[in-house]
Design a protein around this nucleic acid. Structure first.
Lengths: 187, 187
DNA sequence: CGCAAAACTAAGCATATGCTCAATTTTATA
DNA sequence: TATAAAATTGAGCATATGCTTAGTTTTGCG
């Protein structure tokens, strides 16, 4: 039982809460420490700076956001279905997933002077990842025609908005997968 | 030509930008003043406090968010269509609308100790406004069956997500109204 | 136990922040 | 042009913030 490691995880958990609540700049290291019930000094024993806490959370978020729908999916339609299913299930069963989802969205709107964070964020640019899949789906006639970027924004914007609502009001009911699919699939 | 009034509007415009960029707590009154090219003292000549600037923006936002689709709409379906149409058109033609949209969303996630702001926000609680319309639409068979709250979250979450993307990357293409309608209407 | 490493505290430094205020400049108009 | 009102500045006060550091307590283990 590595006590230090446990403490560090606890601090990250608390920091995530505060960052979501007050944003990067509104979060003070003192408040993170206070909410975790430790001294300000201890925080800087585990992290070199406020930015590095943020940085570690972004890293964890990037990992967590990789939605590993099985690569062996047969069609873009099935792949999309599986992805939405995974996200909705995680949102329902795992509160910290939703928190991380919202956090990662906030990160994209927050200007922090850290080139490495910028790079990390590019690696999870959903549009970049999905547009090829959508185009392939359109070619096959599974997805509707139209601007593939706009389709991507519509569907993932919806998922994002739903996740935000779920975090703000945890008992928010989630939509059926098909409702979201219907935005994009042909029928 | 009221010079003071113009200055105040300018300060509000600048403040909106900074609030979107850095959040409430991350925004300093000095930065607002600097970006507006005036002294810190002048800011407090026009506003009694940082919170009051925020407060005024929320008030303006609440006004702007009232989407006045004609009350004379015949059906929930038409009403929803008109609402989505208005939002998408505004997003396309009026950048400050999108900014306000994103700002008002941030406001909902930011805890500021101001009871009046809380009240203002309740007055634009979209779910509260829309659920009766959705239920009526379901009764008429225009909208799909299912949890009306979930339907509301899905469709307005999508709109929200799209607006955010549009503000972040202004040339983002917007979806067709029908794509969004298809999440909710029967066919 | 003995003792070194790890966990932890509390005070403090330098800077940034919200806001005030006395003083100066600009504007409008009689 | 004279003058009062409005616009504007910049120094400064009190507090909060990021982070350091010297020192104390706790822990694990030969």
């Amino acid at each position: 039982m590595d006590k230090g490691d446990e403490r560090k995880k606890q601090l990250l958990r608390v920091a995530l809460d505060v960052f979501i609540e007050k944003g990067y700049y509104g979060t003070s290291t003192r408040e993170i420490a206070r909410r975790a019930g430790v001294s300000s000094g201890l925080l800087f024993h585990y992290f070199s700076s406020k930015e590095s806490i943020y940085h570690e959370l972004v890293k964890i978020g990037v990992e967590e956001m990789r939605i590993d729908a099985e690569i062996a999916m047969k069609t873009p339609r099935e792949y999309l279905f599986q992805t939405i299913k995974n996200v909705l299930e995680q949102l329902e069963s795992n509160p910290s997933f939703g928190k991380m989802f919202v956090f990662m969205d906030n990160v994209q709107y927050t200007t922090v002077n850290d080139k490495e964070i910028e790079l990390l964020l590019k690696s999870i640019d959903i549009c970049r990842q999905w547009i090829p899949v959508i185009i392939e789906g359109q070619r096959r006639g599974e997805f509707r025609t139209g601007d593939s970027h706009a389709l991507c924004v519509a569907i993932f914007g919806a998922i994002q908005g739903i996740a935000q609502e779920k975090v703000r009001i945890p008992n928010t009911p989630l939509p059926k997968i098909d409702w979201l699919m219907d935005m994009i699939v042909t029928r």
